[in-house]
Every structure is written in C-alpha cells, then in structure tokens.
C-alpha cells in the first residue's frame, strides 16, 4: 500500500520535472536569443541560414555599448525612481485595498468602480492633458510626474490587486483585534500587512518592472540628459533608419540583469507562505 503511494509520488515528480525542464527551455529562448545577439556583429546577426551561436564571440559589444552613452548616470537615476515608486505603491495601494475591502463607508462601491474604470482609459487620452497640468505646475523636466502617481495608489491595477487579496483574509482577525480595542491603523500595520507579504512582493515586483522599463513617461517629461533613464538609453540605439542592433542587445542584456536578481530575491516571500494557513489549521 505504502509502496505504491511512494512510487506514485515518484512518478508524479518525474513528470513534473520533465514538464518543468521543457518549459524552462522554451522560456529561456528569448533571453538566450538576446544574449546571443548581444555577442554578435551585424554580419553574423543576419546570416542565412540562421547562425545560432556567435562565432566569433564579440565580447567588445558590451563595453562599446555601455560606453556609447553615460550608462552609470542612467543606472543611478533609474534605481532612484524604482525605489521611490516601489515604496509608494506598496504603502498607498495596500491602504486603499484595506479601505475598499474592510471598512464600511458611504460611496465606497461607487468610488471603487470609478477607480477601476480608470484602467480602461486608453493611455494617450490622458497623456497630453496630464502633461499640461504638470507643466503648469512647473514640474516638467523633474522626477515629480514620474514618482507622485505611485504615491497616489499606484494605479487601479495595484489597488484592485490589493483589494482582492485582502478579501481572501478572513475578517475574524480584524474583529478579534477590534474587540481588544485596536485602532484601524494598528490593525492595518501590525496585523494585516505581514499577512500580505505575497501580494506586497507582487506589487513590488510589478512596480519595479514597470518603472525599470517605462519608456513613455520619462520620454515626455525629461529633457535634461542627466535625468534620463535606462529605457531612454536603450531606445536611443534604434534610429529611424535601422540601428545598432548589436549594441541594443548588449545593453539590453546588461539592463535585464538587475531585474532578474531582484526577482530571484523577492520570490522567497512566496515560498515562506502565509501565516494564515497556520491559523486555519
């Protein structure tokens, strides 16, 4: 009896590992293609039939690409923006999610649906009027338009996500704390936030990813080259008449690395699991 269960488990694991291996291989392809393209010159890049591995490996692409523009400055700028945005979104989106899921107040539903509807607004409709507002306030060519939205809930996406997750946490926790006389603020910070680690990690990762690769917002607001971000630098490799594809790929490969690192680190919050299960058990 026990033997067959163990074998059953083994078989299941083998199947899983095989599937995972196939998936990993498939998912790795774009990244591999980017790195491989980064290490080739133009002639190799477009050879037909397709040349899969670079030969010779053009390592020089990487230093040339990174030196062709002041990447150190761009890197510093982008990190700054990312940190500011992640903190902003994590705090304000979860605050909003708490309000929409836990607290009773008049107009809550209407406000929530209105907020949700903002996701459906095509971006370029608000693009120019928003730019006008920031210009009038004198904040064009600064980082304020790039950071402040993150501190205003971080967008309907983050608020929606946070609310959904709040709703999976049973209310008994709140109510127990309320009986003990805790304030809303305390319930939010001390009791619920730690339980939200998975969704906070998700918000952090998405915000990181969104800010790191965001092209349109810095493009419109930033004029001073010293304020430029990495995404603008990458876009510069591409001209209206063809471009330096080898440098573009080399620089892109380097730019991707920090994000991979961050994801790798943050994902342990998923593994750690949610305290919730302990309570329910």
């Amino acid at each position: 009896m026990i033997m067959s269960r163990t074998i059953g488990r083994r078989v299941k694991l083998v199947i899983c590992y095989t599937l995972v291996a196939i998936l990993s291989f498939t998912f790795f392809i774009p990244f591999f293609w980017m790195v491989r393209s980064a290490l080739m010159d133009h002639a190799q890049l477009f050879r037909y039939p397709v040349q899969i591995f670079p030969n010779p490996i053009v390592w020089e692409n990487i230093p040339y690409a990174l030196r062709s523009q002041p990447f150190a400055i761009f890197f510093r700028n982008t990190i700054f923006l990312v940190v500011m945005n992640v903190i902003g979104v994590v705090i304000t989106a979860s605050m909003a999610g708490y309000s929409f899921s836990r607290l009773q107040w008049r107009g809550k539903k209407i406000v929530f649906y209105c907020l949700l509807s903002t996701m459906m607004i095509p971006g370029f409709i608000t693009l120019i009027p928003t730019f006008l507002i920031w210009s009038a306030l004198g904040f064009h060519n600064t980082y304020v338009p790039l950071i402040l939205p993150a501190w205003m809930g971080g967008g309907a996406f983050s608020i929606f996500l946070s609310r959904q997750f709040f709703m999976t946490i049973p209310k008994e926790l709140d109510e127990a704390a309320l009986i003990d006389g805790a304030s809303h603020w305390k319930i939010f910070w001390v009791i619920l936030m730690p339980l939200l680690k998975p969704v906070l990690a998700v918000l952090a990762i998405f915000t990181f990813m969104g800010t790191w690769n965001d092209l349109l917002t810095p493009l419109i607001y930033l004029r001073d080259r010293n304020l430029f971000t990495l995404s603008l630098a990458l876009a510069s490799f591409r001209g209206p008449f063809g471009g330096r594809w080898d440098f573009l790929m080399a620089a892109s490969a380097i730019v991707t690395l920090p994000m991979i690192l961050v994801f790798f680190i943050f994902q342990r919050y998923f593994i750690e699991g949610v305290t919730l299960t302990g309570i329910k058990g």
Partner: peptide
C-alpha cells in the same frame, strides 16, 4: 519563466 517579461520592450 519570469525572465521573458522583463526583457526591455524595444529589444
């Protein structure tokens, strides 16, 4: 599995 999502858009 996550890596393709973070390759910069232009690239």
């Amino acid at each position: 599995a996550y890596v393709p999502s973070i390759v910069p858009g232009v690239a």
